[in-house]
Simulated assay, not measured.
Amino acid sequence: MSDYRRWLGALVCFILVSVVFIALKGDGMPNAEYKLPANSGETSLLLYIVPGLVACSLSRGRRVLNPFLGAMAAMAVCMTLRYHANASLWQEAAYGVSAVCWCVFGAFIYLFALACMRRRSLF
């Protein structure tokens, strides 16, 4: 029964990171009338914490590796679909790496909160 949970975290992270990417960078996507402002600052990268939190809670065993693999796969697919000739490759790569880092940071936040709750229950 736990075999499906082995990759569930990576799959959920892939889907959630793709949804966040489309919401933030959906200017080239069809029907993107509800996208966020383009120059709203890079604080919008903090939204990538949520897929890391959810994927870590659904993962069994490899709680940091699964969100990392899911985020890397999602960024590879999203960047390939969105790459424009006029976009700077280095800037797009930096955005992708930063999104993956924030996603893994979300997994670490979940693990930290879990450890704090376990620690508190000991007293």
Rank of each mutant, 00 (worst) to 15 (best):
M72P: 02
L122A: 14
V64I: 15
E42G: 01
W102T: 01
T43K: 08
L11A: 14
L36K: 02
A94I: 05
A87C: 05
C116Q: 10
V20L: 10
S88W: 00
C78T: 02
I49F: 12
I15P: 00
R119I: 00
K35M: 13
M79P: 00
C13G: 09
C56T: 13
A10F: 07
N39F: 09
N31L: 13
P30A: 06
I22N: 03
A85W: 15
A87F: 14
A23H: 03
F105M: 13
V64M: 11
I22A: 12
F68A: 15
Y95C: 05
S59F: 11
R120Q: 10
L36G: 01
L89C: 02
S59A: 14
M117L: 15
R119M: 08
V104R: 06
A76F: 15
G70Q: 06
R120S: 10
L81W: 12
A113C: 12
A87M: 14
A93Y: 11
R63M: 12
W102P: 00
F68P: 00
S57M: 14
I49P: 06
L58W: 06
C103Y: 04
S59D: 08
A99T: 04
Q91M: 09
N31M: 10
Y83V: 02
M29R: 01
S98K: 11
F105S: 10
G70S: 05
G106L: 03
R120N: 04
R120T: 02
L16G: 05
G96H: 08
F68G: 07
A38P: 00
C56A: 15
R60I: 03
V54E: 02
L114W: 04
T43H: 07
E92R: 14
C101E: 00
M75H: 01
M117V: 10
R60G: 02
L8M: 11
S40G: 12
C101A: 15
Y95K: 03
V97Q: 03
Y4K: 07
L16V: 02
D27C: 00
A99Y: 04
L24G: 03
L47A: 14
A10S: 15
R6W: 11
P37W: 05
L16P: 01
A107I: 05
L46I: 10
F123K: 14
A93L: 15
S59W: 13
I22T: 05
A38T: 04
P51C: 10
T43V: 06
C116T: 01
S44G: 13
A76T: 10
S98M: 13
F21E: 01
L24I: 15
W7K: 12
V20W: 12
L114A: 11
V104G: 06
Q91H: 09
